[in-house]
């Protein structure tokens, strides 16, 4: 008797980690009543949605690893101010708090838009995506104003190694938000033109993962750069 049947008799949910997934269709000799106890192996490889989501998750993790290198650079160069302004003199925490609020609300509304998209409700999906973008845009405007203000006061990226690494790190996150906004606009047009087809749903899934991952990077960023920097 095959191994799968022996295990299925003892444990109804014997394959929680779906290790048998690769043996899709290989258990054809079982009766219909044992079919549900075999696990995911019956269904063959994972669906395209799961594979696309997993691949995008790997990309996001590699993106986070790239950010970790920039974070390490910033942490090493934090004290290298070359006689210029230090982090404690530059940062305005109330501005950062408003930026953080914008990103959090944007992420929340993005989640609501994904629920609406899952329900295939066009109006609420578009409304959710619009407000996701508006709060993202508000974040970007606040950040650019902060940058312009610093550069106007002689604290531009060429002033010291500390400021070079600051503009690289915060600017790289801002660049990601900008790309996300462009992607968001594209997705709104695609949802409008093509409806809630499977490819569109997969792209929306990837976009929401991207948008939420930017929040995680921002949490590390406002803690390490702004909160720890303002206290020193």
């Amino acid at each position: 008797m095959s191994d799968a049947v022996t295990r299925a008799d003892h444990h109804p949910h014997h394959d929680p980690h779906k290790l048998g997934r690769a043996h899709g269709g290989g258990h054809g000799h079982h009766g219909p009543d044992t079919k549900h106890t075999i696990g995911a192996g019956e269904h063959g490889p994972a669906s395209k949605r799961i594979i696309v989501g997993y691949g995008f998750w790997i990309f996001l993790l590699s993106d986070i690893i790239m950010f970790s290198a920039i974070f390490a650079t910033y942490a090493v160069l934090h004290g290298a101010t070359a006689g210029g302004p230090t982090s404690a003199q530059l940062f305005d925490l109330s501005n950062v708090a408003i930026e953080t609020g914008c990103l959090l609300i944007s992420s929340f509304i993005c989640g609501l838009a994904m629920i609406a998209a899952h329900e295939r409700h066009m109006l609420w999906t578009q409304i959710g995506l619009v407000f996701t973008g508006l709060f993202g845009l508000a974040f970007l405007v606040l950040e650019l104003r902060e940058f312009a203000d610093m550069i106007a006061h002689g604290a531009g990226p060429q002033r010291s190694a500390f400021l070079s690494s600051f503009f690289t790190l915060v600017g790289c996150h801002g660049l990601h938000v900008t790309v996300g906004l462009l992607w968001l606009g594209t997705m709104m047009a695609q949802v409008w033109a093509k409806g809630f087809t499977q490819p569109i749903q997969r792209r929306l899934l990837c976009f929401s993962l991207f948008w939420h991952a930017l929040d995680i990077i921002w949490v590390a960023l406002f803690t390490i750069v702004y909160l720890l920097g303002a206290g020193q």
């Binding site: 925490l93 609020g101 929340f108 989640g111 609501l112 629920i115 329900e119 949490v219 406002f222 303002a230």
Partner: peptide, 28 residues
């Protein structure tokens, strides 16, 4: 599913906001 989903995101937003507010308070 809609209610459950909205509730999940709302709980996440409240917890995240609370932790952010605590962080800024600790720093200030």
């Amino acid at each position: 599913q809609v209610l459950a989903g909205v509730r999940g995101y709302a709980v996440g937003l409240i917890l995240a906001t609370g932790l952010t507010a605590t962080s800024f308070w600790v720093a200030a």
